[in-house]
């Protein structure tokens, strides 16, 4: 791993459960990862795998009835030039003063729907200035000047006019740019991007990805990028966490994930995407579908769909196994201890 000096966020064994009337949903069930400044961690998985909930936990904005029940999220916050303060985000009150000073300042977030995440009641400029005035001592004029600067910076044409427009006047790509301007207004150390390009067209997507990557280089930001599009992952990630039903099933650098995946889910996922570079042939599919969160399979949650499932997979929950220093797999295939008793029984 990279040296610990630029460690930004460390998440360890995070568990988030939703307490609903129909039962407890283990949306996130023991997730461990870390993010360093200047790097991009991509979280990839299908709907319901817990990737968005994990991201929201970093800001303590998990929807009710969801709750962080176990594990820790630690933010390494730069207090002064050479002093780093450790903040345990997982222990903070969701409505407390401290987390509110972190949101939008140290960690900020871009959401999937640029249509719904901007308020229709305020002008674009108003919404960006609000963040600036909340976190810095800037007055209205200074905030406005900074907002203009930001809008220009994210590539919005005629910022002088757009700053006083309401969001409905902007196109999807422009709204997403405005969201990014808002997220960057206080020079965050960590940017969480939750499917920021899913609702956009390919050419706009390419523009937004370029923009985020450029900003990351300029500010040495850490980026947590959540997506279900493996093409985007291959393009921008430094490291990748593949999630399935609340677990990180495989965690490594992007080249290892794409060139040498070890978890059966990662392998099947990569084979099931149609490729623009390949000619027409039958796609390999993962049988079945993502199970309902209320009917989470026993043992390894992937075992009913897994092409390499063993009898033991339905009984024991897998542990995270380190194959190399930077390649972790959450699978019983690599757990020699778990496999042993079955072999003995068989013989």
């Amino acid at each position: 791993m990279a040296d610990n000096n630029n460690l930004l966020v460390q998440v360890e064994d995070l568990k988030i459960h939703f307490f609903t009337n129909e039962g407890i949903v283990r949306a996130v069930d023991g997730v461990t990862f870390d993010i360093h400044s200047g790097e991009t961690l991509c979280m990839v998985g299908e709907s319901g795998c817990g990737k968005s909930v994990t991201a929201r936990a970093l800001l303590q904005i998990v929807h009710r009835p969801g709750k962080i029940v176990d594990g820790s999220i630690v933010l390494y916050r730069q207090k002064s030039h050479d002093q780093i303060e450790k903040v345990r985000i997982s222990d903070l009150e969701p409505k407390g003063r401290e987390i509110r000073s972190i949101r939008g300042k140290d960690i900020s977030m871009i959401f999937q729907e640029p249509m719904t995440s901007l308020s229709p009641m305020y002008t674009v400029g108003n919404q960006i200035m609000e963040t600036i005035m909340l976190h810095t001592k800037a007055d209205k004029n200074q905030a406005r000047a900074r907002t203009l600067e930001l809008l220009e910076f994210v590539g919005i044409p005629r910022p002088n006019r757009i700053i006083d427009e309401y969001p409905f006047r902007l196109s999807g790509g422009m709204r997403q740019r405005a969201m990014i301007a808002m997220a960057l207004s206080c020079n965050p150390r960590l940017l969480i991007a939750d499917e920021p390009t899913t609702a956009l067209d390919v050419t706009t997507q390419a523009q937004i990805i370029d923009l985020i990557q450029g900003l990351q280089k300029d500010y040495d930001m850490g980026v947590l990028f959540i997506t279900h599009d493996l093409g985007v992952v291959a393009e921008i990630a430094d490291r990748v966490a593949v999630m399935y039903l609340g677990n990180v099933v495989e965690y490594s650098d992007v080249y290892t994930i794409f060139n040498d995946p070890q978890h059966p889910y990662t392998q099947s996922l990569l084979r099931s995407i149609p490729k623009v570079t390949a000619t027409r042939e039958k796609l390999e599919v993962i049988r079945g579908m993502v199970p309902s969160p209320f009917r989470r399979p026993s043992g390894c949650p992937f075992h009913p769909r897994c092409p390499k499932a063993m009898p033991v997979c339905s009984e024991i929950e897998p542990k995270t196994i380190s194959l190399t220093e930077n390649h972790q797999v959450h699978c019983l295939l690599f757990d020699e201890d778990a496999k042993k008793p079955v072999r003995e029984m068989a013989s």
Partner: peptide
């Protein structure tokens, strides 16, 4: 051509293609 160039390709070994075309402006 620009559409083709904007499609993300799920292969990190190809990510440094130099000849990417970035469309300016909006539809």
């Amino acid at each position: 051509e620009s559409l083709m160039s904007a499609v993300p390709i799920p292969n990190p070994n190809l990510r440094d293609r130099k000849n990417r075309i970035r469309l300016e402006g909006e539809v």
